[in-house]
Structure formats: structure tokens, C-alpha cells
């Protein structure tokens, strides 16, 4: 893992832990922290940044709905410790455990939590795509299919479309020539 990414994830967790002690939790700040990790995920495409982004985003969604996650702070401290000690395999295991913990919070809402995780993956995939990474690469990074990501991308109109060097008219004329 790149040293810069490692430092960044530790900083994010250091910012996150005090937030979780407050009542009520500042959900929008949670969302900001999740988005921050996506910059690194786009550049370095390390699974650590991606998973942390998913954990924080899922936490944000749960907090928005007033759901309690009493042990998440312990999970995050463990993730931080593994990362700081350079124990990368244990770091990934700890992150997976945190995701699993969020999924298991309440068996009755297990399906909902799975949807939150899936939604987090898709949302973060969209963010990575929005940064300029291809849809296929973003989908692969998040472990989702292009079908899932494309249907989300289409319904989120980007704020700034990049103008095409090849004009639409030129493309259409090329297509017409092929089908004459």
C-alpha cells in the first residue's frame, strides 16, 4: 500500500472516531469523509481505500436512519492499529470484519443492510467513474457489474460533461455511411 494512502486512511479514521462519540452523529461529515477516501481509490485503486469508503458510507446511511452501531468504533480502532503496524493482511481482514459487522447489526434488517452495502458500492463506483476512470474499471474495483453501475450512472447526470472532439454530426455521418 502506498505510504500516502496509508497516512490518509489513518487520518480519516482519526477524524471519524470523535464524530462517532457525539450525539447526534454529524451524518453529513461522515459522508464527506467517505468521499475523501474515493480520491485515493481513484488514483491508487487500492482495495483498502475502497473498503474504508464503503464502511464509512454505509455508516452514514445507517446513522441517517437512526440505527445504532455500538461496536463500530472498536472495529475502526482495530483497522487503524493494523494499518499503523504495517500488518496489511490483518488490515484487510479487519475491514472485511467491519463490513460484516454492519451487515449483521440486525438480522431483521439484514437484507436492508446488504442493500446499503450494495448501494455504497454502486455510489462509490459512480464517484470513481465521475473522476474519469472507465465504468468497467470502476465496476471491477468495487466488485460490482457494469450493468449495476451503468443504470446508476445514467440516472445521475454529471455536473460537467466533457465536450467531444468528434462532433455528434460527424459520428452520425460515419454511422450512416456504414449502413448505406
Amino acid at each position: 500500500m502506498e505510504e500516502r494512502v496509508k497516512r490518509d486512511i489513518i487520518t480519516v479514521i482519526d477524524n471519524l472516531l470523535p464524530l462517532l462519540r457525539r450525539t447526534p452523529v454529524d451524518a453529513e461529515r461522515l459522508k464527506e469523509l467517505s468521499n475523501h477516501t474515493i480520491h485515493n481509490a481513484s488514483i491508487y485503486q487500492d482495495s483498502g481505500s475502497v473498503k474504508i469508503a464503503i464502511v464509512i458510507y454505509a455508516l452514514y446511511k445507517l446513522k441517517l436512519r437512526g440505527k445504532d452501531c455500538p461496536k463500530i468504533a472498536d472495529h475502526l480502532k482495530n483497522i487503524r492499529a493494523m494499518l499503523k503496524q504495517g500488518r496489511h493482511e490483518e488490515f484487510h481482514r479487519a475491514t472485511n470484519t467491519a463490513i460484516q459487522y454492519l451487515s449483521n447489526i440486525d438480522k431483521k434488517i439484514r437484507l436492508y443492510i446488504d442493500e446499503v452495502i450494495k448501494s455504497a458500492q454502486i455510489q462509490k463506483g459512480y464517484k470513481i467513474f465521475d473522476h474519469g476512470i472507465s465504468i468497467a474499471q470502476a465496476a471491477s474495483l468495487l466488485g460490482i457489474s457494469q450493468w449495476e453501475l451503468r443504470s446508476y450512472v445514467g440516472s445521475n447526470i454529471p455536473r460537467d460533461l466533457i465536450p467531444d472532439r468528434v462532433s455528434f454530426s460527424e459520428r452520425l455521418e460515419n454511422a450512416r455511411r456504414m449502413f448505406q
Binding site: 480520491h39 481513484s42 488514483i43 465521475d130 473522476h131 474519469g132 476512470i133 472507465s134 465504468i135 474499471q137 460537467d160 466533457i162 465536450p163 467531444d164 472532439r165 468528434v166
Partner: peptide, 21 residues
């Protein structure tokens, strides 16, 4: 978009990514 820009206009792709990142 990314594949198309890489073939047709990579400078525009780099500029977009710079803004977003």
C-alpha cells in the same frame, strides 16, 4: 467516455481528471 477520450482527446480526459481529483 474514458475509452473514447483516450482514443480521441486524451488531453481533455487529463483535464477532467485533474479537476475532479
Amino acid at each position: 467516455r474514458t475509452t473514447r477520450l483516450l482514443v480521441e482527446d486524451p488531453a481533455a480526459l487529463a483535464l477532467h481528471m485533474s479537476k475532479k481529483l
